[in-house]
């Protein structure tokens, strides 16, 4: 039971993020919603990589008595998460800078008013 809590957290975070993106009209809040969804996915990836009692696969710094490779954790999910975080930062930076430019041109961040392009 205790081990499935992260998975429930993932689902709740995704729902919260989606709610922010669908029902919040402020562009910054939408960006925050996107970041929450991204954190949820990252949490999911990290949770997948968790092994009880496993150690990081750094060969030069292994505690004694660890069997190679059974006692170690496969670092792939962590690597995926790191990559995903880096990409997420780039996306967030781009999104916020676009928000700044939208504010300069439109004088508002309300997505209802930022729609010259429609139909």
């Amino acid at each position: 039971m205790i081990y499935s809590i992260p998975f429930y957290t993932v689902i709740i975070l995704i729902l919260v993020g989606m709610y922010a993106m669908i029902f919040r009209r402020n562009l910054i809040k939408m960006a925050i919603g996107l970041t929450i969804v991204e954190s949820a996915v990252n949490l999911f990836l990290v949770t997948l990589g968790y092994r009880e009692g496993g150690v990081a696969p750094i060969y030069t710094n292994l505690p004694s008595g660890i069997k190679i490779p059974e006692g170690m954790v496969l670092p792939v999910p962590q690597a995926l998460t790191l990559t995903s975080i880096v990409i997420g930062v780039a996306i967030l930076a781009l999104m916020l800078s676009l928000s700044i430019m939208i504010y300069r041109h439109y004088g508002t961040l309300d997505s209802k008013k930022v729609r010259r392009l429609k139909e």
Partner: peptide, 12 residues
């Protein structure tokens, strides 16, 4: 035309 609102929340 009613569907194509141009509202980014609707897209999502």
């Amino acid at each position: 035309m009613k569907i194509h609102t141009g509202l980014v929340n609707d897209y999502i």
